[in-house]
Every structure is written in structure tokens, then in C-alpha cells.
Design a protein around this nucleic acid. Structure first.
Lengths: 229, 229
DNA sequence: CTATGAACGAACCAGCTAGTTAGTTGTACC
DNA sequence: GGTACAACTAACTAGCTGGTTCGTTCATAG
């Protein structure tokens, strides 16, 4: 139907996002790679590393299993590539951070709220992190890209805490990484432990009706702790 | 060697539930079952559900794979049995709770500290919970034992909060389950996300040197939040 | 037009894995 | 002292699974 071997293939169609890339979009290495990564991310996040099936990933792709090995080499390398991309997406939180101008209390609230939102909108990432922890981060260790990738939000947080302490508002015995851990713990738990929590306590932590309340609660807790005494 | 077919097997030893253990200890159903559960718990916690191998579990046992199917029926039922036992162990925290006499602030600190200790000493349980969440708690759902198993610590917490509010110390707009979530989130995160956290931030959350500080921090946060305003 | 190599696909394979078959041995009870 | 049943074992299998072989097609350079 769609011009399987049309004679004038290059002018009648808009080549999507690429300026004038392949008109028929056959043979697009970048595209194929990206599609495999997309499907693999979903599949690994869904089933875990051992549970995910290369055949299944291939089947959900518009290409074949051979292509997975052509581009990624092995199941493990594919998984590492998935992790690397997932972490790089998360890193983009950096750009939204512009809290250096706010007063410390408001800055902490905004930073926590932003992290909160970010986690909520990236459940696949959180699942991948959980999976990676089950495997004791052994795959992250094999990736030089990931091994020493610090969270940019951490520096921002450190500066906020400093400013707050200098202004006499915040206590001085807190470590930025500890505070970051508390924020992460709260945000990650809601998503990562949603199912067992719901099974036992019959409460869906991700219920939209509880979202604002949780967001507020996290901010309150942090501020109350930092300004205590 | 050890009297493979000894002639007087039944009188020189107490057979029942073994005051001084069977000398031959052959043919002990309870023992075999328990051994399989022990090994399976370690194996599932280590490798995840899909990653664990029935053959491997059997090999680490002193019995055979057939016995696993004899006693548990299938890999999945074995896994559910592992979950059930792990949760029942955790339930034992109930007995240690005796905080109804303390003043509310001290009671919250003690409850949080006890939960903190309990989580720290049961890493396998936390791993199993993570694994179960990856599978969206679908196995818990198949177990009537687990499906509606509330945490006993929750009632205790609710009473503490009430008392605290009645005494005018605690704010009144807090829900026990929310507070429980915060405690769990903090305690679980340290263990569950230890490896990725360490890979990225180069800090071992379970470093014994940081233990007391974390314990204190959790108590402070809760109290500061509950007594704020 | 043709040579070349990147991109792609179908079918295959060896080893693994959950689950079974068929049979043996110990023990409680009479 | 024999019998019924629970406890146990070794060897097997059907199907899956990560990885491969080998061959084809397309785009582009010369």
C-alpha cells in the first residue's frame, strides 16, 4: 500500500522531526535504537531484569531480536543502556531548579515539591531503581557513565541549607545528603511501595486526592525539622 | 557411619518434638519443610522471584527438588509461603510495644526507634517487600493470610497521637497511617535503596557509624513535625 | 551501474528450568 | 511381622530463552 518501492519517494512526505531525513523512514538506525530502548525500558521496569524476556521485547518492537543484539550486544548491556537513559532523563530536574533567589524556607519547600512531582511523573524510573537495588547496583557499577553521577539537586540543597543557617533560620547540624535522603525516601516510598502498602492498609498512596496533602506534609516536615528549637 | 540402619531406633531417643533432637533425624517433615523455607527465603530475597531457581534452592537444601513440589506444589506457592512467614516474623514487633505509659513525645520516639531497629535487623524482609512491589503485590493478593494483615504498630501509633493531641502537645491534623508511612519510608529507604545510593553518592546508608544519627534524626523529625506551631 | 558496508530478518541451537514420572524407604499402628 | 501411608529420591522432559548463523536489502559513493 504505502509505496513499497515507490519511484519518487523523497518529496511527497514530511520526514518527521529530522530536517530532511529518510523520507520513507526505512533503515533508520537512530530510530530503531530508540524504539528498542523505549520498549526495553517498559519491559524491564515491568518485569524486572530476570523476568524480562528478550524475545518479548523484540516482539513488541517493530524490528527483530537480532537487532537488539546488533545494537546492544547482550541482554545485560541493553539493561545498562536502559538505566543510563533513565538516569539521564532524571538529571533534567537540574534545569527547573531556580530557587537561589527565594528565602530558605520557601526554597526548601520548592525543592522538595519539585522532587516530589518529578518522582511522581517517572514511576518507571523508580521501578528501575528498585530493581537495580535488588541486584545490589551491580549493573550501575559496570557503567562509567552512571558510577559517579551525582544528583545536581544536591548542590542546590546544600546552598539553601547554608543560606538558611547563615540567616539564623535553620539549625546548623544538618547535612545536605541526609536531607536529600529524607526527601527521596518520602517520594520514592509512595511509588515504590504503593502495592504492598495498599494490599495491607487498603490505601492507595498515589490517589490523586491525597497528592496535595502529601506534598504539603513533606514540606512541613522538612521545614519544622530544619527550623526547630 | 552414623548407624544407617541402627537396630534399636525408637527407645533411646525422644521422638516427639525433639527435646534433645533425633540422633538419626531422618524423615522429619517439619524439619524438611522449614529448611526449604529458610533456603528459599534467602534465595528469593537475593535473586528476586524470576531470578531465583528452584534447582538452586533444592541444591542448597539437604533434600531434593521433588520435595519442594511435594510440600509446596509450585515455585509460586513456595514464594507465597516465604512471604507469609516473613510477614509473620515482622508481626512479632507487636510484643515489644509497651509505650502506652510514656508521655507522647517519648512514645513516638520509642515507636520510631523500635521500627528503625526492626527494619535494620530484617533486611531480607525488606528485599522481599521490594520484590513483591515489583510484581505489584500480586502474590500477596493470592494469600488470604496476608491480604488483610494490618500492622499492629498502627493502632499503638494512633493511640499515641490521640493522647498527644488531647494533652495539647501534638497537632490534630495528622493521620496515624500518614505518620506510619513516614516512619516506614525512612527506615525502608536506608536498606532498600542502599546500593544505588552508595553507587551515586558514595555513602553507605547502613554504615554503623551513622546508625545512631539516623535514629535520632527520624525521632527529631517526627517530634518537630507533630509539635510544630 | 556497481561495489561496499550498514541495517535488517528468519530460522536455528544449546543449555537451562519448572515441573513430572515412577519408584524406594522409613515408621506408626495393629 | 506386616501393612498402609508419609517421606523421600533419581532421572527425565517439554518448552523456553539468551544468543547465533547466515543470508538479504537498502543507501550511498565512485
Amino acid at each position: 500500500m504505502a509505496a513499497p518501492h515507490s519511484a519518487a519517494p523523497h518529496s511527497d512526505v514530511a520526514p518527521a522531526d529530522l530536517p530532511q531525513g529518510g523520507p520513507e523512514r526505512q533503515r533508520d538506525a537512530e530510530r530503531t535504537r530508540a524504539e528498542i530502548l523505549d520498549i526495553a525500558t517498559r519491559e524491564f521496569a515491568d518485569q524486572g531484569y530476570a523476568g524480562a524476556r528478550v524475545d518479548e521485547i523484540a516482539a513488541k518492537t517493530s524490528t527483530t531480536k537480532r537487532m537488539i543484539y546488533y545494537y546492544f550486544g547482550s541482554k545485560q548491556q541493553l539493561y545498562v543502556a536502559v538505566l543510563e537513559r533513565a538516569y539521564s532523563v532524571i538529571r533534567s530536574i537540574e534545569q527547573e531548579l531556580d530557587v537561589d533567589l527565594l528565602d530558605p524556607v520557601e526554597a526548601v519547600r520548592q525543592l522538595a515539591g519539585l522532587t516530589f512531582d518529578h518522582h511522581e511523573s517517572h514511576p518507571d524510573f523508580i521501578r528501575l531503581v528498585s530493581i537495580e537495588n535488588i541486584h545490589r547496583a551491580e549493573h550501575i557499577a559496570t557503567s562509567d557513565v552512571l558510577a559517579g553521577l551525582a544528583n545536581p539537586a544536591l548542590d542546590v540543597l546544600a546552598r539553601i541549607l547554608e543560606r538558611g543557617h547563615a540567616a539564623g533560620i535553620f539549625r546548623g547540624d544538618v547535612d545536605a545528603l541526609d536531607v536529600h535522603m529524607v526527601i527521596s525516601a518520602f517520594c520514592v516510598f509512595r511509588t515504590a511501595n504503593r502495592h504492598t502498602f495498599n494490599a495491607i492498609f487498603k490505601r492507595d498512596l498515589l490517589d490523586p486526592g491525597r497528592r496535595e496533602h502529601h506534598r504539603q506534609m513533606l514540606g512541613d516536615m522538612l521545614v519544622d525539622y530544619l527550623t526547630a528549637r
